[in-house]
Amino acid sequence: MFEITYDEALLLEIAARFDLREPNRLALAEVVQAIVAADGSFTEMVADLATGVGKTFLMSSLIDYLAAQGVRHVLVVTPNSTIQTKTLANFDEASAKYVAGAETVPFVITPENFQRAEVGTVLRDPERLKVFVFNVQQLIRPSDKVSRRVREDDETLGNALYAYLENTEDLFVIADEHHIYHEKAKAFSQAIRALHPVALVGLTATPDATDIPKIVFQYTLGEAIADGHVKVPVIVYRKDGTKDERTQLADACQLLRAKDAAYNQYRAVAGDAPLVVVGHEVVATGVPMR
């Protein structure tokens, strides 16, 4: 049986390994304190950090803290396939988006691999840290028109994956982009609560009004700009007032091309300017926020 405790030395060690920026270090400490204060009872909380501050680093460092405390089951819920792909890249050492620093490397289980034989072996290993990354649509109760593979019995697992998660005693749920779930609030709440997790930790930069009472840590865009973690945002608009979606997308592409050309000119003069590569394509510059 595990028990989550507040370990200041462990928090400092993890912050150093992940090279956490101050807002994420403070957020990690506040989330852990909230979990400890719940004393084993289900608790739901939200960490509200401005976009660009590095919520992915908070997620990975929290998982590593829980693992060091004996937790072996973490479910990361994403609102759509795009964010799911981004999240999986954070756990993939071969990806440019990989978040390094974990002492306990998780075995990542996804909708694509959970029916494989090696996953069944890992699920039966009580010592392996297992991180499940699924969309909310893949977890909610099936209907007559929509089936959910995670709720169907699987011969490799010996049970449905959802049932497996239900029967764990140390399940923690992290909801990425938590504000999006209010659109499916009832179904999402039922799907998560039926799993009987120890805690639900929501990560967002724009909390829904219903999430305000659940916020345990907040770091606003204004604070991030003042501290130099985020650039001052620039609002771009058309003088002619055109704002249909197709025009906005075309304008965005044009602005990106202009930015790319300007930066290439800068690099011709300053050849040591940094590049960030995603896959085989240079798409941005700078250093990821922690």
Rank of each mutant, 00 (worst) to 15 (best):
Y65C: 07
R21L: 14
L28M: 13
I35N: 05
M45G: 00
N80Q: 01
T56K: 06
A38P: 14
I63Y: 04
I35T: 09
H73C: 08
V74S: 06
A27S: 12
D64Q: 12
V76F: 08
V31T: 14
E22S: 07
T56Q: 02
T56E: 07
E30A: 13
A27H: 04
A34I: 04
T51N: 03
M45K: 03
E44M: 12
P79K: 05
L66G: 09
A50Y: 02
G54V: 04
Q69E: 15
V76S: 10
V71S: 14
V36T: 05
V76A: 06
Q69D: 05
T51S: 04
T78V: 07
I35V: 15
R72G: 10
S60P: 00
T43V: 15
L62G: 03
N24V: 10
S81M: 02
I63R: 08
V71C: 15
D19M: 07
Q69C: 12
A38K: 12
H73M: 04
E30Q: 15
L28V: 07
D39M: 04
S41E: 14
G40D: 13
A67Y: 09
D19V: 08
M59V: 00
S60E: 09
D19Q: 13
T56H: 03
A47P: 04
T51L: 06
A37S: 12
D48Y: 00
T43P: 06
Q33K: 15
P79Y: 05
L28C: 08
L28P: 05
V74D: 09
Q33A: 15
G52F: 10
P23S: 02
A38S: 15
A27G: 10
N80E: 09
L26S: 06
L20I: 09
I63E: 14
L28I: 11
V71Y: 11
E30H: 13
T51I: 05
T78F: 03
G54P: 01
A37K: 12
Q33V: 02
P79G: 02
D19L: 04
L20Y: 04
M45W: 00
V74Y: 12
V77N: 07
L28D: 04
D64M: 03
S41C: 07
A47K: 03
G40W: 09
F42L: 13
T78C: 06
L75H: 10
